[in-house]
């Protein structure tokens, strides 16, 4: 059982981090930024992994390049822009908000809004058409009083 557990730990340890020890930057703050940037970039070989997770050789070289540029003083955004200028928006795992992606970002909101508006209208309509209850006539009042054994309420006539 312990062996199985250990195997699992080893498996996930490998999966969680493709960044090899010799790739890391000495400065922990810069290394943390490099990890952030790497996790936003798609491995263009495997296409559904970040370069931070990928074991592909090109992903490794991209990680190294990210670190070189960060060490050289680039901001995170500048590094991302550098990659986008070469690979296009595809290289970002989180799509940018622009003309091409506006449907992607706003579509769900619009659909939700349309649905909410439809429900609201239906609810309003239903309450408008609620049957109005006419007050009981004198005869009905008397009958009710006779049945329940109480005097009919006084009414101004």
């Amino acid at each position: 059982m312990n062996v199985v557990a250990l195997a699992f730990v080893a498996l996930f340890a490998v999966n969680a981090m493709a960044v090899e020890p010799n790739e890391r930057l000495a400065d922990p703050a810069l290394e943390a930024r490099a990890r952030d940037v790497s996790q936003a970039l798609r491995c263009v070989v495997c296409q559904n992994e970040t370069i931070d997770e990928s074991n592909a050789e090109l992903a490794k070289d991209m990680r190294m390049l990210v670190r070189e540029r960060i060490a050289a003083g680039d901001s995170n955004q500048e590094v991302l822009d550098y990659m986008v200028a070469r690979y296009g928006d595809f290289v970002l795992l989180k799509p940018r908000f622009n003309g091409e992606t506006i449907v992607l970002w706003l579509g769900p909101l619009l659909l939700f809004g349309a649905g909410a508006a439809a429900v609201l209208r239906r609810v309003r309509k239903a309450s408008d058409h609620a049957p109005t209850v006419a007050p009981l006539s004198d005869a009905e009042q008397k009958e009710l009083a006779a049945l329940s054994g109480t005097a009919p309420p006084e009414r101004p006539s």
Partner: peptide
């Protein structure tokens, strides 16, 4: 080390 390959957007 892929510097030029990345600069060319090579996959």
């Amino acid at each position: 080390r892929s510097h030029t390959a990345i600069a060319l957007g090579v996959t």
